[in-house]
Design a binder for these strands. Sequence first.
DNA 1: GAGTGTGAACGTCTTCACAGCA
DNA 2: TGCTGTGAAGACGTTCACACTC
Lengths: 229, 229
Amino acid sequence: MPGATVARLPLYLRALAALAEGGADTVSSDVLAAAAGVTSAQVRKDLSHLGTYGTRGVGYPVDHLTATISSELGLSERRAVVIVGVGNLGHALAGYGGFASRGFRIAGLVDDDPRREGEVVGGVVVRPLADLEELVAAQGVPGVTRVPAGPSGVIGVIATPAAAAQGVCDRLVAAGVTAILNFAPLVLAVPPDVDVRKVDLSVELQILSFHEQRKGARAGSVPAPAALS
Amino acid sequence: MPGATVARLPLYLRALAALAEGGADTVSSDVLAAAAGVTSAQVRKDLSHLGTYGTRGVGYPVDHLTATISSELGLSERRAVVIVGVGNLGHALAGYGGFASRGFRIAGLVDDDPRREGEVVGGVVVRPLADLEELVAAQGVPGVTRVPAGPSGVIGVIATPAAAAQGVCDRLVAAGVTAILNFAPLVLAVPPDVDVRKVDLSVELQILSFHEQRKGARAGSVPAPAALS
DNA sequence: GAGTGTGAACGTCTTCACAGCA
DNA sequence: TGCTGTGAAGACGTTCACACTC
């Protein structure tokens, strides 16, 4: 399954939820494409990778498609998420309703700062960093036989300052975490079997800034003279 | 300039800042690649798009390369950012030091909820949603001649619930904003000259979940029999 | 020798166009 | 007729390999 397709499956899932809300029974690739912000050809190609069969002349069954994608994404059982770092960002993440509604559960909040210990955020108690390993070990992914020292199935979220991130990452990995979402602005070093995805807010702004600059240059300056040819 | 290259320039910028900190005068593509988490061939290709000249046998001058990339990204002047929605996420964004240190300034915080008006977050006062247009209009990008009804150069950040996002987006666009960073989990409809980038935390988790599931399946089941060949 | 700059090969993703089926 | 499923074509991005320069 192409990585680009995997990245779009959550979008389809979200669009399908909205369509199901509206009482739709089936969806055509055209409608689904509009809701997800892609082209219809893209939708059909992506769904063909699922082995999913729509009905020609009709479309795809909303409920079955939803179930298939959920299953493919491993969302059938609520996956455990452990958030490290309960600062501004950690608070926002812990309080974000989208996690729970998308099939995840916050299984732990951990912070370095003793003053935060015991605080309750999003219904979960903040625990000291020392409890990290224990927290990860306590999570079993239901339906998956836990192999000792194998992947735990837990997703670790790093919301600490950059200086602390690699240390936290090492501990997560040692505890058996093989999926990490990193908000700290640095490149984490991890073993090859560990997946890291990164979200860097200032990088996003800088990309937007690039395009803005180009627009500004276009609008503010005299158009370039025609090339000699 | 390829979009993929633009997306990596901020990473190089960050890596260069760290190297400059360490007192480095020049960088080889190898070293820069390691710091940015890409390959050295990638670095050379990307930098060649800048028309930047390194010195063969030596590397790239750290200061000049930093200046060139900053300029290319339009970060020479501090670009204004307006954040709409000062909930958990908005708070985290407003308090995020990475914005200021990367060449952006928070020019406005806006929220719907009258109870938040007047609150000071990250040194900026929260203003009512009605002030949005005025705030955008008040920002000029220094050095860029402001064309009436043209792009304002301001970057809008949408950190509202999904239900409010499209309305806010429309107002931003009407006010002259042509660059939007969207945290709400929906696809925004905008005119073609407006750039939208989206960050969806639960989408990232779902992508990680997909890969975790595959690992779990591998570890938990008997290895597939060898193919007949 | 060390390291850049770049054409060419390669792989991946997207779009097109249309055959095939309800 | 309407819409899926999919080979083929095209666009895009990355990696390779090496000529060239300091």
